[in-house]
Design a protein around this nucleic acid. Structure first.
Lengths: 253, 253
DNA sequence: TAATAATATAAGGCTTGTCTTACTTTGTCA
DNA sequence: TGACAAAGTAAGACAAGCCTTATATTATTA
């Protein structure tokens, strides 16, 4: 019924700002948005009215400002793009955090969805493929730093490093390793999915998202009692219950 | 003296259009630009006047339209970004050509310079690092296509493929291979720089650009008598004289 | 030289995104 | 409670960017 034109970059920025401010302090006032984006209060009202018209925010004059479910979805999508770009720039390309942040801010508004998904997969692949291991990308960064060619020294260690990784992976494939689950992964670190054992609702959801052997899961926060745990996977932030996480067999990175 | 504000996306598109049309048919008319960009003739005149004012194009009413050297430099820079993005999307991420083209068109206007350079280096690294070889990226594409995990089969071949590459590279490092130069590379294919033997003017230029062992050179066109040859390196299109190309030792990919 | 094609110009419209100013509402505290 | 400060809003102005249309000018060529 309501045809929704694509949001302008600026409107996307407003949504992103609202989401981030709410995440941080539990609510937003127009003033906060103005400060966050570096604009005047009047501009915020205009933007909010526009966003309310297309049903992205709940906005009534002098009332509490919240995102609608449509707005929430959109905001998360934008932030996801931002994070994916920033991660790729920093972790894979080895760019300086500031440049990565600025670049992501601009590019998040124009990157096509298909490229986002590919970028995710690729980043995962680099981090999970046994041929790379952890040393490979470091070598690239080293090369960048020194503006160095891929010289004999580096390649020598490349050979050894890679062979070790590959042998390890070979053993893993034979199932000889001790099994650890997602529950064993400490806060803030990443792991690679080895097996999803039980088709419980959350794990089902994961499978539908394309999470499988080789996917990367980053544990973001473990609640006081260890339930639920919050993870980032494929660029999405998710909650997984303890009894479900137990059935996700992983390998720590 | 003349402070030049950053061009808008639209103006960059005009420059790009002019360059591409001139490349293709040796000259431009306002009409061609209008057709190329899908706008009306009036818009073109306005844009040309604006570009002439900032000294990007030579424009006099009813006269021949050309890029100034400033405009040429800028146009090449934009096209370089476009190509780099498109190449990365297609060759590394394995995106569909159409999506890659569209994405590059939008992103070329906002990607920071540092990210462009990193992307170039990374693409080269992937294509040159012996740990990857030619099979690695294919594996990623296969995974994407099947939406498959990195399963045992793939990993098995990964192991073998990688070890073969690494051994080959080891031999290369020992200098046991027969030497081939840039001249031996057929039109349209890529090679990896092994050594730049003589510091002639063109090779010097290459070295200043950061081309060294491990860099990728793509041979684009060989003139009838084999001189000069046109190559693409680090995203730049260059001409190299035959007697200079001879001193660039490479390995075919 | 008259018709036609190409180009140029002027005028104007639309959108986006911002700001300012004047005003309203709300919160606080004496 | 009432007055003052802080926060929020409405309305209008403004500028930039980019396009179109209608009309005028110039070039081309039959």
């Amino acid at each position: 019924m309501v045809k929704t034109a694509k949001l302008s970059s600026s409107m996307e920025d407003y949504l992103e700002a609202i989401f981030n401010i709410v995440s941080e302090k539990g609510g937003v006032r127009a003033k906060d948005i103005a400060k966050y984006l570096g604009v005047k209060a009047g501009s915020v009202t205009t933007a909010l009215k526009a966003l309310a018209k297309s049903n992205y925010v709940n906005y009534q004059p002098y009332e509490v400002i919240t995102l609608t479910s449509k707005g929430l979805t959109e905001a998360k999508e934008i932030i996801r793009k931002h994070e994916i770009l920033e991660d790729f720039f920093v972790e894979i390309l080895g760019a300086k955090p500031k440049v990565a942040e600025e670049g992501a801010c601009k590019m998040e508004h124009v990157i096509p969805d298909e490229i986002v998904e590919r970028l995710i997969s690729f980043t995962e692949f680099v981090q999970a493929c046994p041929r790379c291991g952890s040393g490979w990308i470091k070598q690239f960064h080293k090369k960048c730093k020194n503006n160095a060619p891929i010289d004999s020294d580096i390649c020598q260690s490349c050979v050894e490093d890679s062979i070790i990784n590959l042998k390890k992976e070979k053993n893993n494939m034979l199932g000889s390793n001790t099994n650890i689950s997602l529950l064993d992964i400490p806060n803030g670190s990443k792991c690679i999915v080895k097996k999803i054992k039980k088709k419980a609702s959350a794990t089902k959801r994961l499978i539908e998202m394309g999470v499988s052997r080789g996917s990367i899961i980053e544990v973001e926060r473990v609640a006081p009692l260890g339930d639920p745990i919050e993870v980032k996977v494929k660029g999405y932030h998710l909650s997984i219950r303890k009894d479900e996480a137990q059935h996700i067999e992983v390998e720590q990175q």
